[in-house]
Design a protein around this nucleic acid. Structure first.
Length: 786
DNA sequence: CAGTGAGCGAGCTTCCGCTTGACTT
């Protein structure tokens, strides 16, 4: 039996380290935390100095038993969890749970998984740092108290099963407030003037720095230019340089993978996990931009070999984020000489390449440019046109990697980095064309998953291991949705001066279209407003930064953790009780006005089944019942207009008969549809659901039937309603409401009716409305008990 | 992919951070 047991957090790490240490060491992993607060509300005894009740979760029992046995047999147990407060707490939980002895237990730390770093760590062991452990306890207890006291307030005042917490509630707040900024935003139009001088290869663009908000001013400018002479007034050439970005952290990796590869935050993490487990990259949950000396040397060798010495530049990066704990290295390839990987799927290959390029580029020289600015005088006007040109003198790191940027409110771009033809001061220029184009200012950008992570990191909220789960939580709770939304058409004017004449046109552009952006829902907005009203301290953007400062003081032994929590908890708990007692139920209700025909009150609010419009008063003793209509996708309580609300009552609408059955047009989750004989037929986009004619409806039904008939492969004599159809991904069986996959050992031809029945019974029953959630929960519960 | 929207009461929900598989499709 090995004399030494060394415990780290991650199994992949354990494997690597075992290779460095030889047979005297058994290296095991704790798989993160091995204990957590019990799930019930009595986990923290507030009256007794916030004493905690811990338990070993069911899925960790077996692991703990094994570690206990190994610890008993070992002479020395080395606790090698990460060097941050969570890591220190993991060591402490191991110490307690495994029943370790002080004399035979050693705590060690290292920031990089290299042989020298680990051997050095083993030479200088220490004891568990209880100040750091206390800081973690404070963090854990605070999050539990906040989450488990706030959430029940929401159950009472808004809706059951909702949640609130230090991290997720701020994430929702950011999205809700951004949406309101966008709603409030008024686009302003101004004319932007661009001139093109010269012809063919010598043509170049120049722009007027000023913009004209009035069309007549732009027109006058163009008019003045008809007879003007243009001359280069000044010419200035300056060197410029650009430096590479630091190697990836979790958050920057998520951002770049989103922009360059279109990955969601969670996809990036699961692909990175695979690369990590197969030993291709270093640890992917990190906030550090640091590279080990070993990595710096390996990167230098690769750069020198592949591109030459003048492309190498040793760089050491410092983290900008104050909340960083830097227990690991930056994300980098394990071996820099592996430029691309052969095994793994295409996601893995692409993500690896991104990581390799970014890490290599971070050790390369600056790119050098020559920037030229020409100012062009107009004989008839006082203003000058400006032309910018850029010539790349030395590519440096750009040979490998160019960081991308979010398309934020940069209202001017294009034409900036073009090359200019050779120009001389005093040179006269001939105008080829000049345009004045009406441009609108842009509202702030909606968050993507990745840009939300960036913002949270800037605020010091959340950790690398929780960014992806937080994004999922706020979507699962229904606070926000990630969606695609259509834009709308907008007209803009273009004035063109060419060959001495000014031409005016009106063009259209699409604006406001969004892909994969985060939108708040009504429930998200209502919950947010409730929390902002009653618990402003918790959802304040600086709350986390404030408590982090105190955690740091606890970690340095300057503050008692129970004192800190007590000072926070007393007023907080008081506020919880007050709110439960005094706050009204929050429904987000908003009055829309009066119904134009009946004069009844119209209002919108959140109900049991989501947001809806109500016409008429709720309480009319024996009187008329109010009318109800649900809001549609993309509509929100705070922005819906009276006109839009009235539209909701126009559907469903009967449009006539076909085969003696009524046809009804309505709008569902997937858009407008015709319902006929309990079947659904979606309406083409160009048809307005409000004025579908009987003829059009019949046409649509017949077209769909014809298409379905073409997809039909075969039916069965036993039951003509069971069909085999050609679907999007190949043939499948339509069995009542179930769609079934054809087993690998069968083909549509060899399949029998009995096979279909068997498959139907084996398949999980279609989830029933309303019952879905409870059955899914019950299933996981029984699974856990086993 | 319906229209629904009262009230009572039981029993349930919920946090953040550290780790992977075990589940689906």
């Amino acid at each position: 039996m090995a004399k030494n047991l060394l415990i780290v957090e991650s199994p992949a790490k354990a494997k690597t380290i075992e290779g460095y240490l030889g047979k005297d060491f058994t290296v095991k992993s704790s798989y993160g935390h091995i204990r957590d607060l019990v799930k019930s509300d009595d986990a923290i005894n507030v009256a007794n100095n916030f004493e905690q009740k811990y338990e070993i979760p069911a899925d960790k029992k077996q692991l703990v038993t094994e570690l206990k046995k190994l610890a008993k047999e070992a002479e020395t147990v080395w606790l090698a969890s990460d060097e941050d407060r969570e890591g220190e707490a993991i060591s402490w939980h191991l110490y307690e749970t495994l029943g370790l002895k002080d004399a035979s237990t050693k705590r060690i730390v290292f920031h990089e998984i290299t042989k020298p770093a680990i051997l050095k760590a083993i030479e200088s062991p220490r004891k568990i740092d209880f100040n750091l452990v206390n800081a973690q306890q404070a963090r854990r207890v605070l999050d539990r108290l906040v989450g488990f006291e706030l959430s029940p307030v929401l159950w009472k005042k808004v809706k059951p099963s909702l949640s609130a917490g230090r991290v997720q509630s701020v994430a929702v707040r950011l999205i809700v407030e951004r949406e309101r900024e966008i709603n409030k935003f008024k686009a302003e139009a101004a004319f932007r003037i661009i001139a093109i001088f010269g012809k063919g290869r010598d043509a170049f663009k120049a722009e007027l720095p000023e913009r004209y908000s009035k069309q007549e001013d732009a027109e006058k400018f163009l008019n003045d230019c008809i007879s003007a002479a243009f001359k280069v007034n000044s010419l200035e050439t300056k060197p410029a340089k650009r430096s590479p970005a630091a190697p990836f952290t979790t958050s920057t990796l998520q951002q770049e993978a989103s922009r360059k590869l279109g990955f969601s935050v969670s996809r990036t993490m699961s692909v990175a996990q695979k690369l990590y487990e197969s030993g291709k990259i270093t640890y992917m949950r990190t906030d550090s931009v640091n590279l080990s000396d070993l990595a710096l040397n390996a990167a230098r060798d690769q750069i020198n070999r592949a591109y030459g010495e003048k492309y190498h530049q040793l760089r050491k990066y410092k983290t900008k984020s104050a909340s960083a704990q830097e227990a690991h290295e930056a994300i980098r390839p394990t071996y820099f000489d592996v430029h691309t990987i052969d095994d793994g799927d295409s996601s893995e290959k692409r993500l690896y390449e991104l990581i390799w390029k970014r890490a290599i580029a971070s050790q390369m020289s600056e790119a050098l440019f020559e920037k030229t600015t020409a100012k062009i005088g107009i004989s008839t006007r006082g203003e000058e046109l400006v032309a910018n040109g850029e010539v790349l003198k030395f590519d440096g790191f750009l040979k490998v990697y160019l960081e991308s940027h979010d398309e934020e409110d940069d209202n001017q771009q294009d034409g900036d980095n073009a090359m200019l033809p050779p120009l001389a001061q005093g040179q006269t220029l001939s105008l080829t064309e000049m345009t004045a184009t009406e441009r609108y200012s842009r509202p702030p950008a909606r968050y993507t998953e990745a840009s939300l992570v960036k913002k949270l990191e800037e605020l010091g909220i959340g950790r690398p291991s929780t960014y992806a789960p937080t994004i999922s939580t706020i979507q699962n709770r229904g606070y926000v949705v990630k969606e695609e939304r259509d834009g709308r058409q907008r007209n803009y004017k273009v004035l063109t001066l060419k060959a001495g004449e000014i031409k005016k046109e009106e063009l259209t552009e699409n604006t406001g279209a969004e892909r994969n952006k985060m939108f708040p829902t009504d429930i998200g907005a209502v919950v947010n407003d409730f929390l902002v009203q009653y618990f402003n301290g918790i959802v304040d953007f600086h709350f986390t930064a404030g408590v982090e400062k105190e955690f740091d003081e606890i970690a340095q032994g300057m503050k008692d953790w129970t004192d800190m929590i007590r000072k926070f908890y007393q007023p907080f708990h008081q506020e919880v009780e007050n709110t439960i007692k005094t706050a009204d139920k929050a429904t987000g209700e908003r009055e829309l006005g009066v119904h134009p025909e009946s004069g009844k009150k119209m209002s919108v609010r959140i109900g049991r089944y989501g947001p809806f419009v109500q016409v008429g008063e709720t309480e009319t003793e024996g009187g008329e019942k109010p009318l109800y209509a649900s809001l549609r996708a993309g509509q929100m309580i705070e922005t819906i207009t009276l006109e839009e609300a009235l539209e909701l009552f126009k559907l469903p609408k009967k449009v006539g008969f076909f085969e003696d059955k009524e046809m009804t047009v309505a709008i569902g989750k997937f858009g407008p549809y015709i319902r006929h004989n309990s079947a659904f037929y979606s309406l083409p986009k160009e048809i307005d659901p409000l004025d579908v004619t009987e003829e059009q409806a019949i046409e649509i039904i017949e077209a769909k039937r014809k298409k379905d008939a073409e997809r039909l492969i075969r039916t069965f004599d036993e039951n003509p309603d069971v069909k085999i159809l050609n679907g999007r991904w190949g043939p499948y069986i339509e069995f009542g409401k179930q769609n079934l996959k054809i087993p690998k050992d069968k083909t549509p031809e060899t399949l029998t009716y009995a096979d279909c029945v068997a498959l139907s019974e084996a398949a999980p029953a279609a989830p029933k409305k309303g019952g879905k959630k409870t059955t899914a929960k019950a299933a996981t519960k029984t699974a856990k008990k086993k």
